[in-house]
Design a protein around this nucleic acid. Sequence first.
DNA 1: ATGACAAGGGTTATACTATAACATTAAAGT
DNA 2: ACTTTAATGTTATAGTATAACCCTTGTCAT
Lengths: 162, 162
Amino acid sequence: MTHQSIAFHHEHNHSHCIEQALSQARSLCKARKQRLTAIRELVLRLIWQSHKPLGAYELLPALAEAGFNSAPPTVYRALDFLQAQGLVHRIASLNAFIGCPSPDAPHDGCFLICEGCRTVVELNADAIINQVQQEAQTMGFAVRQQTIEISGLCPNCRDKNA
Amino acid sequence: MTHQSIAFHHEHNHSHCIEQALSQARSLCKARKQRLTAIRELVLRLIWQSHKPLGAYELLPALAEAGFNSAPPTVYRALDFLQAQGLVHRIASLNAFIGCPSPDAPHDGCFLICEGCRTVVELNADAIINQVQQEAQTMGFAVRQQTIEISGLCPNCRDKNA
DNA sequence: ATGACAAGGGTTATACTATAACATTAAAGT
DNA sequence: ACTTTAATGTTATAGTATAACCCTTGTCAT
Ligand SMILES: [Zn+2]
Ligand SMILES: [Zn+2]
Ligand SMILES: [Zn+2]
Ligand SMILES: [Zn+2]
C-alpha cells in the first residue's frame, strides 16, 4: 500500500492521520511564526475527522458546540488561514475542504474524488503537473495555479459496483 | 498560430467563432433530435460573445431584454441543456460557463484561464488526460470525470506584466 | 509597565450561486 | 383532436461566500 492511497483503505489507523496532521500543523506554524489559535486548530481537527471533504457550513455546528461564535465568517477566516498555510485545500468542484497530508511545501493538490464513498486522496502528481506545464508552455501560457480534480470510483467502491 | 490558441489573439475574427459555434450547435442538435429553442440558442450566443466565461447571473439581463423570463431557473435550464449537449463547459473554479469549440464528441475540457484578461482557452489535452488516467490506474481508481483548470497569464498579459 | 499597533474574532447584514416545487404553455406523436 | 411529454413561467428557498464595523487580545517598542 502506497502512502498516498492509505485513505482508500477504510481500516487504517486514522487517529494516526489526525495526530500527524495536527502535530505537523503546530510545528509548521511555530516555525513560520503563525498563530494556530484554538479556532484554527479545531477547524483543522474537524476537517481531519475523515478523508472526506467538508463544506464550510458543516463545520459551524461543531464550532458552536465548542463555545465559539458560529457565524460563517468565523469558519471562513479559519479556512483562509489554513489554506494560506497549506494545511488544507479547497476542492472547487465540491465547494469543500480537505486536509493536506504534506503541507511542508506549498503546492496545488491533485485529487482523486470517489463518488461512491466520497473519500478524497491527494496525489503526489509531479508527472501530471509537468505535463500540464509543458502543454501550457507551448501556448506561451505562464501557469500560476492548477485545479486538478478527478472524480470516479475508488478501488473499494468500484468493486462493489461490479 | 494553432487553432487552440486563437482566443489569445485579441484581433481574431470573432464573429467567425460565434457563427461556427451556432452552426455546429444547430446541426448537432438536429442530428440528435434535440431542440435548440430560442432561449437555448440565445444563451449559447451570449456565452460566445467572447472567450471569457460568463456567470449564470450575467446572462439574465440579456434574457430579460430579449423578452424572456429572466428568473434564475430559466438560465440554469438552458445551461444544463447546453452542458448535456457538450456545447458549453462549466468552469468550477470560476462558477462560470464557456463555449466549447469542439462539441462533436463529449469530453471534459482542460482549460487555460488568464488572470489578466480572463480569456479562457480549451486545450486538446489528450496527453494530460492520459497522464491522469495512468496515475489513477496505479491507485486502482476508475476515472469518470476530470476537472482540469489552469490559471495563470496568457502570452499577452504575461508580456504586459514583464 | 505602558501605550501604540496589528491581528484575531464577534456580529450583522448582504452578495452570489444554484435548485425545489408547482403552474402553465407549447410541441410531438397518435 | 386527443394524449403525452417537454419546455417555460413563477415563487420561494437552499447553499456558498464576503463586506463592514466593532471590540478584544496579543505583540512589540519605548
Ligand atoms: Zn486516515
Ligand atoms: Zn496538499
Ligand atoms: Zn470542450
Ligand atoms: Zn490575458
